[in-house]
């Protein structure tokens, strides 16, 4: 586990992975877009609007996948006090929030033609909305302390509390939804999705995941540099009472 605590080693590993993940991201997003927009059939019920699914559903998967990763990383940060895990958690949270926002926006754009309204308190949409707030809380808490280590640790506890709560929230929202939702609104229950639709869906999902890996490596590198900067500034301040350096907040 602590083999990668050494930033130099991690940076080497990251530099080795980066070209591959970026290549996979570009290729599968390009192929995914081609199949999503040209080489896939329109749905017999939803018509061409089904194409929104190819960004909406992968975005929802990413929202959940990144939150799970965030909780796992936070557990590593708390249990093993792994210094890189703190940085990784801080680096991935905003990306997860961005995918969650994308899922909400595209869900709304899909809901307008399908349900006739921009927002319904559908169980899944509502759960994703709550997930979005969990992300925002995590980001805000991480940045709320003068000492970044303290912020990272507090945010890690919050991520784990959140991941314990996510199934409970999901269950309670489903329960609430069955109590209140009129039966007329049914989500597309796809028992057997057409392979021609599955292909762009999977390609987009792979593309999003590879994109996430590349961005994460990039952002962790930024966080490592930021930490180095803080150390250097601290030492500089200790050696000679230099004027305060602007832009400490990162």
């Amino acid at each position: 586990m602590h083999r990668f605590a050494n930033p130099a080693r991690f940076l080497r590993l990251g530099a080795a992975i980066m070209p591959w993940s970026t290549g996979v991201a570009v290729l599968s997003l390009a192929a995914g877009l081609y199949f999503a927009l040209f080489a896939s059939p329109a749905d017999y019920q939803q018509g061409e609007s089904v194409r929104i699914m190819y960004v909406h559903v992968p975005a929802a998967w990413m929202a959940l996948f990144i939150y799970t990763s965030l909780a796992a990383t936070s557990a590593i940060a708390l249990v093993w006090k792994h210094p890189l895990a703190d940085l990784a958690a801080k680096a991935m949270a905003p990306v997860g929030a961005a995918f969650t926002a994308l899922c909400l926006v595209t869900g709304s754009l899909w809901g307008q033609p399908m349900w006739g309204t921009w927002w319904v308190w559908d169980a899944r949409l509502t759960s994703v909305l709550v997930l979005f707030f969990l992300y925002l809380g995590h980001i805000a808490l991480n940045n709320a302390f003068d000492d970044p280590t303290r912020g990272a640790r507090a945010a890690a506890v919050l991520a784990i509390v959140g991941v314990v709560n996510v199934p409970i929230i999901k269950f309670s929202v489903d329960w609430w939804n069955t109590l209140h939702q009129p039966a007329s609104i049914t989500r597309l229950a796809a028992p057997a999705i057409d392979p021609a639709m599955l292909r762009p869906l999977l390609l987009m999902a792979i593309g999003f995941t590879a994109y996430f890996v590349s961005i994460l490596l990039l952002r962790i590198r930024t966080e490592i540099l930021a930490r180095k900067l803080r150390t250097l500034r601290y030492m500089q301040g200790a050696e000679a009472p230099a004027p305060a350096v602007a832009g400490e907040r990162i």
């Binding site: 805000a140 509390v161 309670s172």
Partner: peptide, 16 residues
């Protein structure tokens, strides 16, 4: 900050 962290976790209690 407190409401942002706590209110989402309060939702199940509110629902039931």
């Amino acid at each position: 900050l407190l409401p942002l962290l706590v209110l989402p976790l309060y939702i199940p209690v509110l629902i039931f």
